Structure formats: C-alpha cells, structure tokens
Computed example of a mutant assay.
Amino acid sequence: MRLTVSTWNINSVRLRIDLVRRFLDEAKPDVLCLQETKCPDDRFPLKELQGFGYPHVVFAGQKGYNGVAILSRLPLVTREVMSFCERQDARHISAVLGPEAGAAAGIAIHDFYVPAGGDVPDVKLNDKFAHKLAFMDELRAWGGRRPAGPAILVGDLNVAPLEHDVWSHKQLLDVVSHTPIETERLESLRGEAGWVDTMRHLRPPPEKIYTWWSYRSPDWAAADKGRRLDHIWVTPDLAETVKSVTVARHTRAWEKPSDHVPVTVELEL
C-alpha cells in the first residue's frame, strides 16, 4: 500500500483555500496537514475542504493566528489536541488512521506548529524566543514519553537544523530559526525520541533543501535565500518504508502564495 502525507503552513486557510484545492487536485496526497490556519473553529471551512475529496477532517484553531488541521481521504480516529507552556495555543493536533486504512491502520499523525520566536535570539530581551525554547523543551519531554507505535510527525517546526538547510550557514548563525541553541534543541529532541528525518534520510547533505522563502525578498526565486523550516519525521519502524520526499517549490510562485511550500512523503507499507 502506498501512503502519501503532505504538510503545509498555509498562512490562512480561508484566504488560500483555492490554493489548497489546487494543491490537492495536483498532488492528491492521502493526508494533508496544515499549519497557521488562522481561524477559530466556528469559522473553519470544513464543508469546503471535505468537498475537495477529504471527508475526514480534524482541526484546532483560534482567531487570527496559529491553528492546525489534518485532512484525510482515509478514516481518522482518536483526535487529540495538546497544549504547551500552559497556553491554549492551537499548535498541535493528532489523529490515528482507522482500521479501514488497510496497511496504514494504526499510524498516528502528529501535526505541529512550533512558535517562530520573533527576531531577537535572546531569551532576556525577547519573550517570543523564550517561549519558543520552552515549547521545544516540552516537545522534547513529550517525545520521550510518547506511546509506542508507528507515527509520523509533521509541521512547521520553525527551525532549519543543518548547515545545508539554509542559504548561508555563516550569515544565519545569529538569525532566529538557525541559531545553535535552536538547532541543537531540535536535533536533540528528534534524536532522543528516535524520530527519522525523512528528507535527510533520502537526501543527505550537502544537498540544499528549502521549504520557506521570505515575503521580504522582491525576487525570491532568483535570490533563493531559503530555509528548511517544514519537516516530516517518522518512527524507526517506518524508516525503511519511506520511498520519496518531494518539496513543491513551484507553489511559492502561485498568486498570493504562502511563504512556505508543501512537503510530501511517500511510504510503501
């Protein structure tokens, strides 16, 4: 059985719902995980998304920012939302593929949106950066006690952990998303819990991989100053089923795009 899972920071699901439809029509993933949906639950466009051929949808949102959702062709069970740092931010949602999903049944899918962290990489001067590090510490603790079983962790983790995950390692060492304190935390929480970074599992350094290009760049494609902020990890029992990971770079050129692009993993179960 082939299982495809995509992740995309959509930067407002209502504003870019036509782009969601376009991507789903084009890529046809079995599951699409969204971050930064930016709408409360009572305004989430559930019927429209289900009308795109994804009847099974779970979501958690709040007004104006954050928000996560999982859209699936396959049945989902056991929806769960976790809170971090004693805040009711909509930064996580998970579900398990149901018995009708065949060989994929029982796989848990976790969708995360890690705080961006602001502009100043100093916990004393920037509360947003302090919050980001605290969130990552709690995520690390959760990873150590996560229930056993096959799982896929996806999302905008807002960290480009490796040297070749950014356009210039030297120039970005003091820029939030690539500072040593962030990259070491992310790699530690991934490694300690045994997650496998699917992109780097198949496409190791020194290949450059980016999933985000700033809106501030007047010509993002020519400048190509990207970062790999979006990730798909799997538990070790799924590592050998990973057949491909693709980055839909072309979607960054669509009209009124997100600054992130979709990433899709293909598993052969």
Rank of each mutant, 00 (worst) to 15 (best):
A193C: 05
G194W: 06
G194K: 10
W195K: 07
V196W: 01
V196K: 03
D197W: 09
D197C: 02
D197N: 06
T198E: 02
T198N: 03
M199S: 12
M199N: 11
R200Y: 02
R200I: 06
R200F: 03
R200V: 06
R200N: 02
H201V: 08
L202Y: 05
L202A: 02
L202S: 01
L202G: 00
L202M: 03
R203E: 13
P204W: 09
P204G: 04
P204V: 11
P205W: 13
P206V: 01
P206A: 04
P206L: 05
E207F: 09
E207Q: 14
E207H: 12
E207P: 06
K208Q: 15
I209T: 15
Y210Q: 00
T211F: 00
T211E: 02
T211Y: 00
W212E: 10
W212K: 12
W213Y: 07
W213N: 05
W213I: 01
S214H: 13
S214G: 08
Y215G: 03
R216M: 14
R216V: 14
R216C: 13
R216P: 11
R216D: 15
S217W: 11
S217T: 11
S217R: 09
P218R: 06
D219Y: 13
W220N: 14
W220S: 15
A222W: 12
A222G: 13
A222T: 09
A222Y: 12
A223Y: 12
G226Q: 06
R227H: 10
R227V: 06
L229F: 14
L229E: 08
H231Y: 07
I232R: 07
I232H: 10
W233V: 08
W233P: 05
V234T: 13
V234Q: 09
V234A: 08
V234H: 09
V234C: 13
T235D: 01
P236Q: 08
P236W: 03
A239C: 05
A239I: 10
E240N: 04
T241C: 09
T241E: 07
V242H: 07
V242E: 01
K243I: 11
K243A: 15
S244L: 05
S244M: 10
S244I: 09
V245D: 02
T246N: 14
V247D: 12
V247K: 02
A248V: 05
A248P: 00
A248F: 06
R249N: 08
H250L: 03
T251K: 00
R252M: 04
R252T: 00
R252I: 01
W254F: 08
W254Q: 01
W254H: 04
E255D: 11
K256A: 13
P257R: 05
P257C: 03
P257Q: 10
S258Y: 08
S258M: 06
S258A: 04
D259E: 05
H260A: 00
P262Q: 03
P262M: 04
T264C: 07
V265G: 06
V265Q: 07
V265R: 08
E266T: 15
E266L: 15
L267C: 02
L267A: 02
E268G: 15
E268W: 12
E268C: 14
